[in-house]
């Protein structure tokens, strides 16, 4: 029986990505494969890159580490970054806002409405 279906989804566009579901991979390194396309897109991005996590219910600390590495990568690229979070998801409201200090061009938007 295979119950280990992927429980997350990451959609990439040129101007941003949307993460939904649950991300609890074992190590920060395990996030690299799924975050590499985001990193590549950020390098190519000419405007503000948007990371939408409003539909991401859970992320473990390895994921926070991986996400913060994306912020550091944007800082290195001097790229404006916007993270969209949901007010109704406790860890987002609390933890993600702290990432602001990593990058002056980062805005964290915690919104009332959950992702549709």
């Amino acid at each position: 029986m295979n119950m280990e279906d992927a429980d997350h989804r990451i959609e990439n566009t040129a101007a941003g990505c949307t993460m939904t579901g649950v991300l609890r991979l074992a190590t920060p390194g395990a996030y690299e494969r799924i975050f590499n396309p985001i990193h590549d897109a950020m390098i190519a991005c000419k405007t503000t890159y948007v990371v939408d996590i409003r539909g991401l219910n859970f992320m473990n600390s390895s994921g926070i580490t991986a996400l913060s590495r994306l912020v550091l990568a944007a800082r290195k690229l001097d790229l404006p970054l916007r993270i969209l979070g949901a007010e109704s998801i406790a860890w987002q409201r609390k933890t993600i806002t702290s990432l602001r200090r990593l990058h002056t061009l980062l805005t964290v938007d915690i919104q009332d409405t959950p992702a549709s």
């Binding site: 074992a26 190590t27 390194g29 600390s61 926070i64 580490t65 609390k94 702290s98």
Partner: peptide, 20 residues
């Protein structure tokens, strides 16, 4: 931790105190 792949970042415990 940006440069390393160490799994013992302590970030989980920090967020527990800081955010919860």
């Amino acid at each position: 931790n940006a440069a390393t792949n160490r799994s013992e970042s302590g970030l989980g415990l920090i967020t527990m105190v800081k955010d919860h």
